[in-house]
Deep mutational scan, measured.
Amino acid sequence: MEQATVKWFNAEKGFGFIERENGDDVFVHFSAIQGDGFKSLDEGQAVTFDVEEGQRGPQAANVQKA
């Protein structure tokens, strides 16, 4: 698992990007966020996640709020 920071997340559209420590951004979809209830992330929030290869490149999976 990697630890990184949420760059931005649009709760209405259900997706955003996580900024990795190496500077690369990773796409995150609300369905990858672990937990119950409304799944959203806040800008600047610390998260841990795995990286999977998606249809359009790397994307976050198993996202957990740190």
Rank of each mutant, 00 (worst) to 15 (best):
E52L: 12
V6N: 02
N10K: 05
S40C: 14
A32C: 07
F15A: 02
F17V: 07
S31E: 04
S40F: 14
G37T: 05
K7A: 04
Q45M: 11
Q45Y: 06
E52Q: 12
G16L: 03
Q45D: 13
G16N: 02
G54E: 04
P58N: 07
E12D: 11
Q55V: 13
N62A: 04
A61P: 01
N62L: 06
R56Y: 14
E2M: 13
K7S: 05
Q59H: 09
A66R: 09
Q3C: 15
V47L: 00
M1A: 13
A11R: 13
V51G: 02
D24C: 11
A60Y: 01
V47G: 00
V28Y: 04
D24K: 14
D50R: 14
S31M: 07
E52S: 10
Q64S: 10
V6E: 02
D36F: 11
T48W: 14
A60N: 00
G14I: 01
G54F: 05
F49S: 01
N10R: 04
N22G: 11
I18D: 03
G14W: 03
A4P: 03
D50N: 15
G14S: 01
Q3N: 11
P58G: 04
F17D: 02
E12T: 13
V28K: 00
G37P: 06
T48I: 12
A46I: 15
G44N: 07
E52D: 06
H29I: 05
E53R: 09
V51F: 09
G57Q: 04
V26H: 00
G54R: 08
F49W: 00
F30K: 07
Q64I: 12
K65G: 09
F30M: 06
A4N: 04
G37D: 07
S40D: 07
A32P: 01
A32L: 00
F9T: 02
A11L: 09
N22M: 09
E21A: 13
F15C: 08
K7N: 05
T5M: 09
K39E: 06
M1N: 12
M1V: 12
S40I: 11
F27R: 02
E12C: 15
Q59R: 11
D25I: 12
M1E: 09
S40W: 15
Q34F: 11
E53Y: 15
E53I: 15
D42Q: 15
G23I: 05
Q45G: 06
S40G: 08
S31D: 03
A66N: 12
A60H: 00
K13R: 11
R20M: 09
G44S: 05
A32N: 06
G23W: 03
A32Y: 02
A32S: 10
M1C: 14
V63Y: 00
E19T: 15
L41C: 05
D42K: 15
D36P: 11
E2F: 15
K13Y: 10
